[in-house]
């Protein structure tokens, strides 16, 4: 419609501007695309059973390693999480949404190092997550050692317990957690992605 308007009024310069605007959109349509992997969508959805189905049943890749002739042992050992086009990793999404069960699954069972994400995650997000964890914790310990969840999440609890006793979540405490997690979580080579 804007083209017609310009032609009617003999405004050639406006016509050219509109034309360029359209070309600009056209260019961006093909070049800028926001992409995210199915695992990212599952984490954003917050359904742990769906994420487990994707990762355990269908072997969706969790980290990208270089495959083929170029990949040496040293480059493959560097942990490179798969990212969306906004440079967000799985842990980043789970932490910012405060899905504690998914964070636990990724860190404890899938050995994703929390310390590798340190650059991108703001300290406030970590403190908020710690806050959520602390709110959940007393419930679990009150249930006693008979619950099945406790045995699986024992490692996770062990790292958070010192915080629980102090009762205050300071910034130093968060760094303490990270140090403890980093010595346990080793990048594994179970998952391969190609491309």
């Amino acid at each position: 419609m804007s083209y017609l308007f310009c032609c009617d009024n003999n405004k050639i310069d406006l016509f050219i501007v509109y034309l360029f605007l359209n070309l600009f959109q056209f260019y961006f349509y093909f070049n800028v695309c926001y992409d995210s992997y199915p695992v990212h969508c599952a984490v954003l959805g917050g359904n742990l059973s769906l994420l487990k189905w994707l990762i355990d049943e269908n072997c969706c890749p969790l980290r990208s390693i270089r495959v083929g002739r170029g990949g040496s042992k040293a480059t493959n050992d560097i942990y490179t999480p798969i990212l969306t086009s906004f440079k967000r990793s799985l842990l980043h999404i789970a932490l910012s949404k405060k899905y504690i069960d998914i964070v636990r699954y990724l860190v404890v069972e899938k050995h994703m190092p929390l310390c590798a994400e340190m650059k991108d995650i703001p300290i406030e997000t970590l403190v908020e997550n710690l806050d959520t964890v602390l709110r959940i914790l007393p419930k679990e310990s009150a249930q006693g050692s008979t619950s099945a969840e406790m045995s699986t999440s024992s490692t996770f609890r062990a790292s958070v317990e010192p915080e629980d006793s102090s009762g205050v979540n300071r910034v130093e405490d968060v760094s303490l957690i990270q140090r403890e997690m980093s010595c346990r979580a080793v990048p594994d080579s179970d998952f391969v992605s190609i491309g």
Binding site: S36, Y37, F86, R88, I93
Partner: peptide
């Protein structure tokens, strides 16, 4: 396809 990203989805910030 489970191993490839969903692309070209406009207006959604992930």
């Amino acid at each position: 396809n489970l191993t490839t990203p969903f692309a070209n989805i406009k207006g959604e910030v992930l």
